[in-house]
């Protein structure tokens, strides 16, 4: 049976839970808490959505110019 945790402990672990940096037992405790606590769940959802926005904003595609420059380096730094 997973130990019940209070909001205080859930909030302390929330960011590392989202980062998948807590152990399996703590993660189960978090799952259980979040399935019953609306307040912590909303907080978790907001942090998760904000992170997905940050991740999407940081995605880049290299220019054709850089691609050819790297290809030239591969050729020049010969085998």
């Amino acid at each position: 049976m997973t130990k019940q945790i209070a909001c205080e402990e859930a909030l302390k672990n929330l960011l590392e839970y989202l980062d998948r940096e807590i152990d399996a037992e703590q993660s189960q405790q978090m799952d259980r808490h979040l399935s019953t606590c609306r307040s912590c769940y909303s907080r978790m959802e907001f942090e998760k959505r904000l992170r997905s926005h940050v991740k999407a904003a940081g995605k880049q595609e290299v220019s054709e110019r850089l691609k050819s420059r790297i290809d030239r380096l591969f050729a020049d730094k010969g085998r």
Partner: peptide
């Protein structure tokens, strides 16, 4: 990994041309 390397280089240098130079220097 090129897109990801460039993305990180761009956030470090905050300038596209410097980021391209940084990626090229890294590859060398």
């Amino acid at each position: 990994l090129l897109d990801r390397l460039f993305g990180t280089a761009l956030r470090l240098t905050r300038n596209r041309s410097d980021a391209e130079d940084l990626v090229a220097d890294t590859v060398v």
